[in-house]
Design a protein around this nucleic acid. Sequence first.
DNA 1: TTTGCACGAAATATATAAATTTTTGTTGCA
DNA 2: TGCAACAAAAATTTATATATTTCGTGCAAA
Lengths: 242, 242
Amino acid sequence: MVTTSALRLASVTPSCTQASTVYDRLREDLLSGRLEPGRKLQMRFLTETYQTSQTPLREALNRLTADGLVECREQRGFYVADISRNELIELTKTRCWVESLALRESMAASTPQWEEVLLLAEHRLSRTPRSLKSEHFEDNPEWERLHRVFHRTLIGNCGSQSLIAFCGQLADQLYRYRRLSIQRAFPSRHVSDEHQAIMAAVLSKQADDAVALLTAHYKQTADVILRDQKIFPELQNDGERA
Amino acid sequence: MVTTSALRLASVTPSCTQASTVYDRLREDLLSGRLEPGRKLQMRFLTETYQTSQTPLREALNRLTADGLVECREQRGFYVADISRNELIELTKTRCWVESLALRESMAASTPQWEEVLLLAEHRLSRTPRSLKSEHFEDNPEWERLHRVFHRTLIGNCGSQSLIAFCGQLADQLYRYRRLSIQRAFPSRHVSDEHQAIMAAVLSKQADDAVALLTAHYKQTADVILRDQKIFPELQNDGERA
DNA sequence: TTTGCACGAAATATATAAATTTTTGTTGCA
DNA sequence: TGCAACAAAAATTTATATATTTCGTGCAAA
């Protein structure tokens, strides 16, 4: 009874449609930096790499354009969204503004359940190593996932799906910058302490403190990336986009 | 990112490509309510109505999904995004939050140029009749355009393209609700006075007043729509979306 | 109630048309 | 005579249309 429908559902779940599958794969490659900023996304290259045809690819590229990870120049094809100092600064500023707002509203609507979920999210994150190797930095996907969940939980109680979605979009775009300079960020900071402090402020209902800690957290991350000469080699290379 | 939905709106009509053309037309029909909420968007119907083929249509529908005007159920086709009391309330709440933020930042970064642009936008709006006929209400597209420009100008000096784009998206979604009950809203209010008051507060640097007036403006609009029995016939018909 | 078949609709692949870019050739000027 | 610039055509690539396959839904029969 339950088993048949459940099994059918389970079999469908992993990869529903071709377009969604290639969307997920492309997204992953964009966020990780394997597809470098500014690169032209030629159809021939994409169809060969992802072993699919133009139609689902166009669909995926259109969705990614809406996410701000791909740029679509009319009748000139698709490009990986470019990066620039200015954009990094603006995205960070916007994220601080909007997440401050969302965090305050989340705290204003606080419930014991939400606080418990937050406590768990922080606990799990703190127990997970950021790097897979202790000698050199090797990205731990599980840490990234839990990091995401923690920040999402902070703002997740604000009561607005659209605001949460917007924060997610900003997080994605900034995540790409972070990945590009992740080696430098590794040794220099104690992000775990920062997360712990934010959570503590939330649980003790200190909204102003929580907001200050959260914005400082984001600003420090941006500063580390901005100082990275490998990403922004030129001084004052504003990289204005057309 | 520059190519997100609200900015696509700003680039009004360079629609040289088929997909952009049908996007604009579909968008217009969705916002006006000609395509009613919840309706299934069958490919055959769409290709006949808009005289184009599936590929550019799918492209347009994907963009509109990102804008929140169309819903895409995997392998079950596209639907006009449904409406509900809850969504109207949530969108209004979010718009008040986010535009308050954007307005404060706009005012904090105020320049004589921006103030002049705002003055002009309000002036032009006040000189344009809201209805084409004086006896009964008939939507004046020019008023709608100028109304949009005015509100966009208020937040346009905040210094964040992504925030402006997000506000535009919220405005679009709420515009659809407003259009559905526009007859009732017509006689009861003096929106022109409200716009004038908001502008006056901005020009005299009274940020708290400006924000209070702006949020009151949006809340009153939502209240009028919520009272409309033709749109929300049932009491507490929450219309939760899947 | 369940299972299989048939019909309809959506997703994908391929072919065709349109547009842009690059390359090559010619012409004009130094 | 050599170099540069402009123009035209070819090649590459994007955008669109059509055909094919795959998938969901409803009905009927066991």
